[in-house]
Design a protein around this nucleic acid. Structure first.
Length: 344
DNA sequence: CTCCGGGGGA
DNA sequence: TCCCCCGGAG
């Protein structure tokens, strides 16, 4: 399974253990359908909260923690929404997805495993979840191997638990995080997060999206990632800029009732969730991230080598040679507001 | 040099 | 909506 790797590889942790530990939040806000007018608009009741299938179910039993919650109650509410869609999927989406999978498997993309996924997977559930949270925090704007290195350093120093981080010096944390991107802010956020986890969650991490979002440095993208990987509870699609960009290029998402492209990742998430079958919610992220890094790049997408260029509404349309047109965007003499750096 | 990037604050 | 945080890549 080459392509089924959520960018959890970033986390250095596997979704592995089933852990029926999740409280099953009443997902009210998550995937609620916005107001779309063109298509059927059913009220979209409960979103199933289930533990990701696959191997998860396999060994899960011995967890005496709790009998598996009545998942069915959620999944089959009155509108067994699992495969019931609230909007018609775009034409050929399955073919497009399949082609992207092929492209992905042939060209190894960076998102693929770092072989570091065991880092946190061997930890006890609570520590593993905390590691997932910390990894998510660190991984943004940071290469996988760098994130992994930082996680390893924290681990080696016994600083991968809420208790330890809370007691540790922020400067120490900061130094261990370096050279992760935004390490100063992340160190600060980490301290705050540890304190919150300790005071409100007994050192564990929040169990719902809403509470996750209250943590400093955790926004929608990471919150969904943590729900998916940390709790094995798919509340929504983890949408980053790659997913956002590519879904718009493919014409897979739009502003409710219009043909306009979505303007934010959150808007993309809601639009995508209206039709994408739930079993694709998790794999879509690593798939498109990899595709976005190798083929459907932000600038000058390589439509020429893309096997779905016949099905993509945007194919060959965004190839404006940027630099050549000097007058177009902005005269280079007027750099917008270049960050005046620290060079006196 | 410019662009990229998640989250957060102005 | 922009800008900043901090690096890496082009």
């Amino acid at each position: 399974m080459p392509s089924t790797r959520i960018s959890t590889s970033k986390l250095g942790i596997q979704p592995s253990s089933p852990e029926p530990e999740n409280p099953a939040p009443e997902s009210s806000s998550t995937g609620t359908a916005p107001n779309l007018r063109v298509f059927v608009r059913k009220k979209r009741p409960v979103k199933t909260l289930e533990i990701t299938p696959t191997a998860v179910e396999a060994e899960t039993r011995e967890q005496k923690l709790c009998s598996p919650p009545e998942i069915e109650d959620f999944a089959f509410g009155k509108d067994s929404s699992y495969s019931r869609l609230t909007q018609q999927p775009p034409p050929n989406w399955e073919k497009v997805l399949q082609e992207i999978r092929k492209m992905r498997s042939s060209e190894g993309a960076p998102v693929d495993s770092m072989g570091c996924e065991k880092a946190g997977s061997s930890l006890p559930p609570k520590e593993r979840r905390f590691a997932v949270l910390v990894s998510s925090l660190l991984s943004s704007q940071t290469k996988d191997h760098v994130t992994h290195g930082a996680i390893q350093r924290l681990l080696q120093n016994g600083l991968l638990t809420a208790e330890a981080i809370d007691q540790s010096d922020e400067v120490t944390i900061k130094n261990l995080l370096y050279p992760v991107g935004f390490y100063t802010r992340k160190a600060s956020n980490l301290k705050k997060i540890a304190k919150i986890c300790l005071s409100k969650y007994d050192g564990d991490i929040p169990g719902t999206l809403e509470e996750l979002l209250l943590l400093p440095g955790i926004g929608p993208k990471m919150a969904h990632l943590v729900m998916n990987v940390g709790w094995n509870n798919v509340q929504g699609i983890c949408v980053d800029t790659h997913v956002h960009r590519i879904c718009n290029r493919l014409g897979w998402v739009s502003r409710s009732g219009t043909k306009q492209r979505t303007s934010t990742p959150e808007e993309t998430r809601e639009s995508l969730q209206l039709w994408l079958p739930k079993e694709e919610w998790v794999p879509i992220n690593p798939l498109l991230v990899g595709f976005g890094q190798t083929v459907c790049t932000p600038l000058r997408p390589r439509c020429g080598i893309c096997t779905v260029n016949g099905l993509c509404p945007s194919a060959f349309k965004e190839t404006p040679s940027p630099s050549s047109t000097s007058k177009k965007s902005r005269p280079s003499s007027t750099p917008k507001k270049s960050r005046l750096n620290k060079c006196p």
